[in-house]
Design a protein around this nucleic acid. Structure first.
Lengths: 160, 160
DNA sequence: TATTGTTATACTCTATAACTATA
DNA sequence: TATAGTTATAGAGTATAACAATA
């Protein structure tokens, strides 16, 4: 579990103030929303042994959108170059990624996902979503509509 | 980032069927909701250097609800006893947790969170929620109400 | 000389196996 | 003999520093 899973709005970040009513309400909602999202994430996250570790899967996913260099991947994932080098080596070893030379720059190499790599990404997504699909099917149309709208709103909020 | 962050409902888990319309809709919603939740989680998650690592923070959080033994904590977190032993040792070393002897059973020890430990949990929660509080403040009352309802619904869905 | 990528080494968190002490 | 906890050792994944090859 993560911190504050079942907790009320503990440690609200605003110092007690005279107009504390609205602040506390916001803090409580922020806490509630975060905890709900974390519970969902946790419930669908990587469960070891039947899929690739997250850091490998993420790299594979990036490559499904097109070839990239190890350097690109490292900065995208905010990981050091040597770490990415190792992760890539593992994926190449497993036959999920192929190294190709950059024709224009001899220092660089372009990484390309293989068919097996694409299959691994699809499998992982299917595995992750199965839990939610089963449960969403039991909701009413109105409830599903509400969740769709909330997801849209959260994406907006996060992007702002 | 996580797999499928901006992806459409890729790798829908149900095999193509004759009544595929509803299934695809559910798969799409499941995917959308998961991705939104993961983005929120990621946005507020542990960012190194200004707070404790997650595994330490979680233990500390458990102890804010009352004293527990290392064994309790290990099974709660589904981690091995030696791993928990090490984590606890680190927290004791840092003065965030205190070891006390169980009066009834000489083999066991009860772990108690210190005042500094509680403060660390509160700080972490505040730090995590601050991002969302700022952004939720910009929404309308109706939008906030929608998110509150969605959070309630997601908790129900996850618990079922 | 600057940049791309890898290798060398070390630290953290995890695990299983072996050990100590209490029941 | 079984249980609670720790210590010993090893395997991932991460980092920084040093290196090789190319621009």
């Amino acid at each position: 579990m993560n911190v504050n899973e079942q907790a009320p709005a503990v440690g609200a970040p605003t110092a007690p103030s005279l107009s504390a009513g609205r602040d506390n309400e916001l803090a409580s909602l922020a806490n509630t929303v975060r905890i709900a999202c974390q519970r969902v994430s946790r419930r669908v996250r990587y469960d070891s042994a039947d899929t690739l570790p997250p850091h490998q899967l993420v790299v594979l996913f990036h490559l499904t959108k097109g070839p990239m260099t190890p350097g690109d991947l490292a900065s995208r994932e905010r990981v050091s170059a040597p770490s990415m080098s190792k992760t890539v080596a593992t994926l190449v070893e497993a036959g999920l990624v192929e190294r190709t030379q950059d024709p224009d720059d001899g220092r660089r190499c372009l990484l390309v996902v293989t068919a097996a790599g694409r299959a691994a990404v699809d499998d992982a997504a299917a595995h992750r979503d199965w839990f939610m699909i089963e449960r969403l099917a039991r909701l009413t149309d109105e409830e599903r509509e509400l969740l769709a709208e909330a997801a849209r709103l959260l994406n907006e909020v996060i992007s702002s």
